[in-house]
Write a protein that binds this DNA or RNA. Structure first.
Lengths: 223, 223
DNA sequence: GGCAAGCCTGAGAGGACGCTGAGAACCAGT
DNA sequence: ACTGGTTCTCAGCGTCCTCTCAGGCTTGCC
């Protein structure tokens, strides 16, 4: 999952980056509204965390322009407590949720998860494909009801694929979202390696290879 | 979803009722601890929002009696900031989460959603995991039936982990809830150190490490 | 079949992560 | 001020994870 955090308070932005990375997200930063808009338009993010008060371009204005450009990435707005703006304004402007500063990281993560889940199509909290269950909330993976030990990177990859169950996801897309890099020239072999790890742990059939296109996890009916 | 709000401040209670209704919840009110307890026992609620300071019966006492009566409805406790009670106490007493006044409605809704998702895991008043028993009421810990000396911080950590038995809890979450700090940039090593202390006192296997994700105590079988 | 491009995988280097002992800082009681 | 206990910081170390590389295998195409 790739997030964009737009905030001009450097300390807070870094703290969020650290904290959210620890939760398994890939986090990019932008420090003013202009840079934020550029990144949001270009970046193909899964979610944007946006401060309301920003140099160059306010959070308001940023969301409006995003929506005008037909970009519907979920936006979580951060507002200062003393705000002359209130929640309604932020929400009316096209944000999907908002949070008042100061807030706790745990709450932020909970809201982010909720938004991501709501995001594309309303999906059950526990994702499922064949005999495999993925629970993003508790970071657990079950195969035939039994828990499987899985590393952080493996989990991030599996979660992304499962979130897009039924779709073919290219190696480049996986690399961008699961690994933190925009460097397109890099070797995508690492994706193959990790697909291999997952297959070894979960069974050969959990991830299909679509030659020349990418990978796909079958849409999941259990039982 | 049916919620019960117990608070003696009429204005606040009404505001919560209005706000939560708008979120799609059905909200009943009670204005003192006695009425709250009756309603909670009779009402089959999905969640209870509970002020700590109440006439007739404190929030504390209310939760304790609920749990004694084997009612495991999730409880979200509201505490005043200046409190002689602190948050850890609320959690030890059997509440599932807490929120310090003043708070924003959106945050409250987020917490409520999180609690409802987590659901009410029926658990005995004394929590148990393997050979270890934790009694929040008396702040005592037994291993193989023998009492183990434990410090306040160690207990808070163990209680939090045990309350979330079966789930992986991140170091950041532990740090926020057990150390009550919102400083995200601080070193989380102290969590590791205290996990080490607990393992030394209670046995290596009471707390599992989930590398890259956090810690977990095994789901307890209760005799 | 023969070939090339795409994909898989075993081995291993390097680094990130978690654990622990030592001890400093702090507090309460004497 | 001294003692005993608790909390927290720090640095070193071991382990597991991550990623690269090279060679082998599969697939699609002629």
């Amino acid at each position: 999952m790739r997030l964009l955090v737009v905030d001009d308070e450097l300390r807070l932005a870094r703290a969020l980056q650290t904290g959210l990375s620890r939760e398994g997200y890939v986090v990019d930063l932008a420090h003013d509204g202009g840079a934020g808009l550029d990144a949001a338009l270009a970046g193909d993010y899964d979610l944007i965390v946006l401060d309301l008060m920003l140099p160059v371009l306010s959070g308001y204005e940023l969301v409006r322009r995003l929506r005008t450009a037909e970009v519907w990435t979920p936006v979580l707005m951060l507002t200062a407590k003393d705000g002359e703006y209130d929640e309604a304004d932020a929400l009316d402007e096209g944000a999907d949720d908002y949070l008042t500063k100061p807030f706790s990281l745990v709450v932020l993560v909970a809201r982010i998860r909720a938004l991501l889940r709501r995001g594309a199509a309303p999906r059950p909290a526990v994702m499922r494909s064949g005999t495999v269950e993925v629970d993003p909330a508790t970071r657990r993976v079950l195969r035939n009801g039994e828990e499987v030990e899985i590393t952080a990177r493996e989990f991030a990859l599996l979660a992304y694929l499962t979130r897009h169950a039924g779709q073919v996801v290219s190696k480049a897309e996986l690399y961008e979202h699961v690994w933190e890099s925009h460097d397109h020239s890099r070797d995508l072999n690492v994706v193959e390696v990790y697909v291999g790890y997952l297959r070894r742990k979960l069974g050969r059939d959990v991830i299909e290879t679509v030659r020349g296109a990418g990978y796909r996890v079958p849409e999941g009916r259990s039982s």
